[in-house]
Structures are given as structure tokens and as C-alpha cells.
Nucleic acid binder design. Structure first.
Ligand SMILES: [Mn+2]
Ligand SMILES: [Mn+2]
Ligand SMILES: [Mn+2]
Ligand SMILES: [Mn+2]
Lengths: 220, 220
DNA sequence: AATCATTTTTAGATTAGCTTAAAAATTTAT
DNA sequence: ATAAATTTTTAAGCTAATCTAAAAATGATT
């Protein structure tokens, strides 16, 4: 069965929404995620439903079938592997790769993804710290917390971002808060929920509430 | 101005036909190259003409404008660079890469092609020996002849193929006639226009007329 | 329970790209 | 030069994907 570029994007959107909200994806949630009209979503829902890629009850939201979920995770696998390629091999910075990977994820080929995976050394996480599902669709799980959840004197490594915006990624570059950087909480300010942290054991920096709520840390 | 995946493919087809035939591309030639109906071609010609990507006089054929030619050569550049990537880095064989490159050539990004070019070491020819145009659209010219044009005792190196079919490429692999292989004509048989050739200075082999007419040789 | 607000679906239209069949223009052959 | 053959265009219609506006269903409020 042929599956279009557009259908793939809808499946990925439904996957992400269900995962984020822990419940079926509503028509409006999908239309918002895809930046299309709700009417277009209703239309596409019918098509995906006919292809048994989603379960759908009118007015009650959408969930992926096994086949639909398989396509969605495979798409995410390709997206993240291409992001690794662009950063590790072509030396793009982590804020430049999402758009390109958005196109590359739709390339269809039997062996390409697996060869790419091998060429990259079977990475488990992408340049933003997001897990790369394996060929069976299983995601590596890593216990991580937001920096904002750390208490005084706790330490850890920067392992990911919640906010993927260019603005945030460039801010982190400026602060040298790249993935793998050690951080330690030196002081917490109740007033504005900001924190003074020690970065790489050498530089102190005050980070705003917003920053702390968007940085994933692995405690150690 | 937005230019679609399909429009790009038409421009590339027109470029190839004009180059091959040395005259404007006819509606039928395009429909044959694109495997679509002549009516579809007439339709698309109008659209490309409105966008000033082609010159078009009814019943008289199509030529590319400067802008159209620029898009076509850029597409060919991307296609051939991706083929080099797939063969050199991901270890695909030369008969497996065309279809994938057919998709990859449509990826849009400011810096991607140039970074890829650099990563690959600025190759001048693709895995089939076809020249890779530079960023300005200039193709390297190499004086090459068909093996069938060589006379007795003349030698050269295999530098390219005219027929890109999987069947031919796999045949060449079997005969160890990969790019760069030295060949010398030992004997010519008028009867069926076949040739006995010395391959890599060590193995003799009779090659059919069809094979000889599809192998590009650089004399030496 | 009835009203109001929100969400979702339906209706009607548009665009790109494609098809087949018929008509028109051009080229080739007699 | 006229007829026949070929090429190209036009006409009409289809599907995927989109939109806006209106109708219908659901959920929340009084
Ligand atoms: Mn991304
Ligand atoms: Mn996508
Ligand atoms: Mn990512
Ligand atoms: Mn090639």
C-alpha cells in the first residue's frame, strides 16, 4: 500500500501528540500540530482510517494502530539518524538540522536507514538528546530530570532539551551548555525561580526559570 | 517562487533531452522520458512557461531559460553528489544508488550541497563516471570514446557507462570492469562486431558489440 | 433542563498533477 | 497538391490535499 509524504507527517504528529498528552489525539490538536485547518484533518482521518493506520471514533480522538505506530516510529528513527549525520559528519550546528531532517525522513529505500545507522556507529540519541528508536521501534529510556527539579548542590550532565527552538539552542551554545556538560546547582532563588549553577566545574552562571525548565539533566 | 518536486523533474528531463538530441525537446520526447501522457506534458509546459523556466513555441519544442537550466544542473549536481555519498560512504554498489538519489536530489537546503561536496572531497565524477557540475553549473569535460571506437592494440581506462541499467552495471561487476580498469583491444571480430580485450593486463575476455558500445574509455 | 461555547464534521470550492478520447496542426508520402 | 500519418493540443474528468463557511454534535454553565 502506497503511503504519501503527507500521510506520514500526520502519523508522526498523532504519535507525538498521543505520547505528549497520554490520550487520543483530538482533531484540533492535530490541526494545530500540522498547521492546517480542522476540516483538512477530518478529511485525512478518513483516509488514514480506511488504510487501517489509525483507530478513530468521531468526536473522540485518534489513536495509531500497530501498523500506524510502526510507520511513525520508523519516521522518527530516520529523522533523528539524519540529524546525527548532519551534525557529526557535515558539521551543521544543532539548531540548523531539524528542517533538513524533516525532508530526509521521507526518503524511501530498503537498506538506506540501516546502512546510515551503521555508518554513524549506531547512535542511541540524536543531537538534541532525543532517543533514536531501534529498527523494531523501541526507544532507549534514560532517567532524566529537568534542571529545575534539582536541589541545592545536586549535580548532573546536560543530556537533552525540551524546547527545540533555534533561539534556545543558540542560547545554550553561547552559555557552553552543550550535551554532556557537567552542571551543579550552587544556589536557588525563590524570588524568580532562577538558579546559580556551576558549568563544567569552572564557570558560574545564573540561569532563568525558563531555561531550567527546558534542560534535561542526568543526575550523578 | 515555489518550485515543486514534479516541476524539477520536468526541467531535468528537458535538460537531458536537449543535451542528448542537440535540439529543443518535443512533447513526445518529454512524455516518454517522464513516463506520462503527452497531454500531461502540454499541461506542465504551460506552467513552466508561465514561470519563465522554459521557452516554448507550440508544435516546435521546448528549451530551458537560464533560470530553468540553472535549476536542472543544480539538480544533477545534487543527484550525482548523493550517489557518490551512497557508494563511497555507505558502501552501496553502483547499481543500487540511482533510485535513492532520485529522491535525495530534491532535498532543499541552503548549505547542504556545498557541505556534502566538501565532505566527499569535491569529487568531479559520480560512481558511473558522469561529470558532477560545480556550483556554477559547469561540467568537467573529459575526452572519452566508446570502447567500440578503439582500434586493435589501442589501450585505455574504463571511465564511464552510457547504459545505466542495473543489468549492465551488474554485468560489468562480474567482468571486473569497474571504473579505472585498464583495457587493451587484442582482436576485433567483424562478424558480430565483438572484441577480445585484455582486462587489467591479466585477463582476456570477449565483449559483445552491445557492451563495447556502452563503455566509455579514456585513451592513453 | 435549557442555553451557550467549543469542537468537530459536512458542504462546496480550489489547485497540482494526472488520465483518456477527440480535435487540430504539422509533417510525410503519394 | 492532396491525402495519410504523426504529433500536439484541447476537452472533460479524476484524486489528493488543501481552504472557508455553515451545520451539527458535544461539553460546560447556569
Ligand atoms: Mn528534529
Ligand atoms: Mn516530515
Ligand atoms: Mn532532534
Ligand atoms: Mn549517476
Amino acid at each position: 500500500m502506497e503511503i504519501s509524504h503527507t500521510e506520514e507527517n500526520y502519523l508522526k504528529a498523532i504519535f507525538k501528540i498521543s505520547e505528549r498528552d497520554g490520550k487520543p489525539a483530538s482533531t484540533n490538536a492535530i490541526s494545530s500540530e500540522m498547521s492546517t485547518s480542522a476540516a483538512s484533518v477530518t478529511d485525512m482521518i478518513k483516509r488514514l482510517s480506511d488504510k487501517t493506520l489509525i483507530h478513530y471514533e468521531r468526536y473522540r480522538g485518534v489513536t495509531l494502530t500497530g501498523q500506524g505506530a510502526q510507520i511513525a516510529t520508523h519516521l522518527i528513527r530516520k529523522h533523528r539518524l539524519w540529524e546525527v549525520f548532519l551534525v557529526d559528519k557535515l558539521h551543521f550546528s544543532w539548531d540548523e538540522v531539524h528542517e533538513i531532517a524533516e525532508q530526509l525522513e521521507h526518503i524511501k529505500s530498503q537498506g538506506l536507514v540501516e546502512r546510515l545507522d551503521e555508518y554513524l556507529g549506531f547512535p542511541k540519541f540524536d543531537p538534541h538528546g532525543d532517543p533514536i528508536p531501534d529498527a523494531d521501534g523501541n526507544f532507549a529510556i534514560r532517567k532524566q530530570v529537568l534542571l529545575s527539579e534539582l536541589k541545592h548542590s545536586e549535580r548532573g550532565l546536560v543530556v537533552g532539551v525540551q524546547d527545540h527552538s533555534t533561539a534556545f539552542l543558540q542560547y545554550l551554545d553561547r552559555m557552553a551548555l552543550v550535551l554532556g556538560t557537567p552542571v551543579e546547582v550552587l544556589e536557588y532563588f525563590e524570588y524568580d525561580e532562577s538558579m546559580r549553577v556551576l558549568i563544567s566545574g569552572e564557570r558560574e552562571q545564573v540561569l532563568s526559570k525558563k531555561v531550567c525548565q527546558n534542560l534535561f539533566i542526568q543526575k550523578r
